[in-house]
Write a protein that binds this DNA or RNA. Sequence first.
DNA 1: TAGATTGTTAATCGATTAACAATC
DNA 2: TAGATTGTTAATCGATTAACAATC
Lengths: 211, 211
Amino acid sequence: MAVSDNTVERLSIYRRLLRMQGVSDREYVYSHELAEMVSGTAAQVRRDLMELGVPGHSKHGYRTDELLTAIGAFLDDPDGTHAILIGLGDLGRAVLRFAKTGGMLIRIVAAFDNDAMKIGRVVHGYRCQPVAELESFLRANRVDVAIIAAPSSAAQGICDRLVASGVRGIVNFAPIPIRVPDGVRVERIDIATVLEKVACLVRRASGERGA
Amino acid sequence: MAVSDNTVERLSIYRRLLRMQGVSDREYVYSHELAEMVSGTAAQVRRDLMELGVPGHSKHGYRTDELLTAIGAFLDDPDGTHAILIGLGDLGRAVLRFAKTGGMLIRIVAAFDNDAMKIGRVVHGYRCQPVAELESFLRANRVDVAIIAAPSSAAQGICDRLVASGVRGIVNFAPIPIRVPDGVRVERIDIATVLEKVACLVRRASGERGA
DNA sequence: TAGATTGTTAATCGATTAACAATC
DNA sequence: TAGATTGTTAATCGATTAACAATC
């Protein structure tokens, strides 16, 4: 059976926690400790780790170094993961900054924008390339994931070009859903929706218990 | 029965689509049209809209104006929703920019940072306030949602102070999970995890059908 | 040994999907 | 009427949780 989306997501989070100060220097970690850190259950952690085939040790828990190795073997491409970024507005810059300093294991290899003012300029160490050169870049370089940080109006068009050039993984920051053919994976990061959702759920919860 | 998280999220997306050019000027929309736009099923759309109690019309579908009114009545606070932002790095600035131009229905009412270089300066129309004044601001103003765009190392501490001051909704951009007591709602926006997830799922999918 | 933990199967829970009567 | 759509209940599906034997 295929591993579930949610398990993949949690494995990424477990790894981040394991690399954190105060955890990374420990030899062993218990499933209930990882669970507590992600506000989950110990059973779920064990079930997730089961997928990796990483051995736990009764009485001691899991070796942190073994866990890190096993999670890496599962999540990472041995040849590394290459991403490109399209759109160098505030958000695009935030992503670049994050990629350089946030200990990200994915490498952004190129950044594109359509704005003549930006093309050729260097942002956070990346030279901004014209979007028109997307296809030639994709012909010449392996790209695993494309990050769309362009305006909504441009998102679908860029997405279509990415897919036509063989990109199979897309992260979309534009606040509209984009359509892709089967076999292409899109993850949406929709800040406005998340804000509205939290606000709505909090309001409704407080209404229920009468505030 | 309480409305599910996912339904709330989809309602927010339906609204965004309904307000888009090319849809907003239509008098009626079918469930299968909305479904197609979000890559979902017509049954799911109808089920979501059922929660609103908004009447559809057999043969014509749903009136767009009635839908927009009903979704607004469900999602929005009649007094408006007030958010604050903590952390004015690249990401914080991106959120501010987005709040001003993205047609967001939630209003950011204040922005905070700890950096002495930033305090007092105006970013995208917001004067940066010192984080030390968080508590006094929260005593004087209603705040529905707080957006944490601060470094990981500061996130939990800020979160604790927000919760202690009565904030019940938090959106966390810091790449670590934060812990909150029951009754407080946290949504995580974790860019690194989303990238790793997409890359991993794409790689595993392509491996299966042999590439 | 006694106690605590893992690994894994079975039970539960909740969300999505299918089905179909009612409606226009 | 015939055809297409909604509103809603029942069936399906998948993910989480609970349970517990095996292990140290």
